[in-house]
Amino acid sequence: MTNQKLSICSLILFIAILASSCREPQKKENKNVAQASTLSLHTGDERYLMIDSKESVIKWKGSSLNGLNAQAGYIYLSKGELRIENGQLVGGTVEVDMNTIEDKNHGRDNKLVNHLKDPDFFEVKRFPFSTISITRVNSVNSDHKQVTANLTIKGITKPVAFQTKTEITDETIKANAKLVIDRTKWDVRYKSAKFYANLANQTMSDSIEFDIQIVAKK
């Protein structure tokens, strides 16, 4: 009877040891899988390239409603960065210095430019900077991207969408885009038919065109 009990106890002990040895590799395997999953969240070539304010520029254009009396000029970026992941543009933010507004001849102190800086237009003393913050980028083809961003002017933020052509190397990114906005959405109401009646030929178009040329470097 004693020998039989010993045999049963030995059998139970053997089964327990066998079960324990089978479970241990499974724990290690699960741990390895968890580590691999965590690492996968951090893989990829992610870089931030800083805006070169000397090589970046925005060309602006506005006109009367009938297309006459067109005005154009330049404005410059103060700082910003573009985010690149796996060789593609995926995000970024740029800041525009509204005090750098120029006319088409690069004049900064004249009737036109001073008017653009006053409350009729961009109220630059109160709102010296505007920003463009990219929220989403979708590929159109290898060179062109569809960009969705938040544009802030005069402290008002609205979503905008535009296409950009990008040239990306290990050291730089060049991005060119054309953005057309309805200025009244940012409270730029001067001679807009939406707010003023009987302006006749003095009515100004609500559209402002921006030709954006950005260079960012590592």
Rank of each mutant, 00 (worst) to 15 (best):
N3H: 12
K5G: 01
L11S: 15
L13D: 04
F14M: 13
F14T: 15
F14Q: 12
I15W: 10
A16V: 15
I17N: 04
I17P: 10
L18P: 10
S20D: 05
S20V: 08
C22I: 13
C22Y: 15
Q26G: 01
K28Q: 11
K31R: 11
N32L: 11
N32H: 08
Q35H: 10
A36P: 01
A36F: 13
A36L: 11
T38V: 10
L39Q: 14
L39E: 15
H42W: 02
T43R: 07
D45S: 12
D45Y: 09
D45L: 03
Y48Q: 10
Y48H: 13
L49E: 00
L49M: 14
M50G: 05
K54N: 12
K54P: 00
S56L: 00
S56A: 04
G62S: 14
S63I: 01
S63D: 10
N66G: 07
G67H: 13
G67L: 08
N69K: 11
A72K: 15
A72Q: 14
G73F: 11
I75F: 06
G80M: 03
G80C: 02
E81L: 01
E81Y: 14
E81I: 09
R83T: 14
I84M: 03
I84W: 06
E85F: 10
G91R: 09
T93W: 00
N99S: 13
T100W: 05
T100R: 07
D103L: 09
R108D: 09
V113D: 07
L116K: 13
L116E: 05
L116R: 11
P119R: 04
P119H: 05
F127R: 12
F127A: 01
I132M: 12
I132D: 01
I134W: 08
I134C: 01
V137S: 10
V137T: 13
S142K: 02
S142Y: 00
D143Y: 09
D143V: 07
D143M: 03
H144A: 02
K145E: 01
Q146T: 02
N150K: 11
N150C: 00
T152Q: 09
T152E: 08
I153T: 07
I153R: 06
K154P: 06
K154S: 07
G155D: 05
K158Y: 03
A161C: 02
Q163T: 15
K165I: 03
I168R: 03
E171V: 11
T172E: 06
K174Y: 07
A177T: 05
K185A: 01
D187G: 00
R189T: 11
Y190G: 13
S192I: 08
Y196D: 01
N201D: 15
N201F: 10
T203L: 00
F210P: 04
D211W: 05
I214P: 04
A216I: 09
K218Y: 01
